[in-house]
């Protein structure tokens, strides 16, 4: 029986979603899982929609997550969460920052940013955990710590100890930002 767990991390190029996958990868490695983490580099990093796949279990083959497969979708931005709901498996959960960042077609007026996306997703029967991660990151000391706030929230759904998470954070962020990131993680966890 395939016990692979799938976590998609999505955001807007430049938001720092690669750090979240790095942290998760480090943690899972210490737990003895087989792991694949798939990133996309290049053009989409210039403000485009960026997707990272994290998969772990006894034996992981494909590096990507397909429609209907994600146990968790971690989203840095609300529109991006709505873009990828088809990737969620039955019983899966979206954890999303409620921040809205207008894509260029919205900025130019060629398209509009749909309203109340979080309530619409909920109404469509999607398990969604939407909260203002940006404010918590700012409270921790830096708007760029949204990734750690989201990881903190995700940690509520995993059976890993605080020590295991903190060790992974220590390995993934520069020493001078360690306290800030730990604080962001805890704020996300308790939110």
């Amino acid at each position: 029986m395939n016990n692979t767990k799938n976590v998609m991390i999505i955001g807007v190029g430049g938001q720092g979603s690669l750090l979240a996958s790095k942290l998760l990868g480090r943690l899972l490695l210490t737990k003895g899982y087989d792991i694949k983490v798939s990133e996309v580099h290049g053009m989409s990093q210039r403000g485009g929609s960026v997707v990272t796949y994290v998969r772990f279990g006894d034996k992981v083959y494909s590096p990507i997550i397909d429609r209907g497969e994600a146990d968790f979708i971690i989203s840095f931005e609300l529109l991006e969460a709505a873009r990828y709901t088809e990737y969620l498996k039955a019983g899966g959960r979206i954890i999303t920052n409620t921040q809205e960042i207008n894509p260029m077609p919205v900025i130019t007026g060629a398209a509009s940013y749909p309203e109340s996306l979080d309530t619409k997703m909920e109404a469509a029967g999607i398990n969604i955990d939407a909260f203002d991660a940006l404010s918590l990151a700012e409270e921790a000391g830096n708007a760029k710590a949204v990734n750690l706030v989201l990881m903190g929230r995700l940690s509520n759904y995993f059976d890993f100890t605080d020590d295991e998470w903190m060790n992974a954070i220590e390995q993934s962020v520069p020493a001078k930002f360690l306290e800030l990131n730990k604080k962001a993680f805890l704020l996300g966890r308790e939110a």
């Binding site: 053009m43 403000g47 088809e86 969620l88 749909p114 109404a123 999607i126």
Partner: peptide
């Protein structure tokens, strides 16, 4: 294969930009 639910709104694309 399975597929998750989606909402009825059109989701505007997010192409890369300068």
């Amino acid at each position: 294969t399975a597929c998750g639910n989606k909402i009825s709104d059109t989701i505007p694309p997010r192409p890369p930009v300068m």
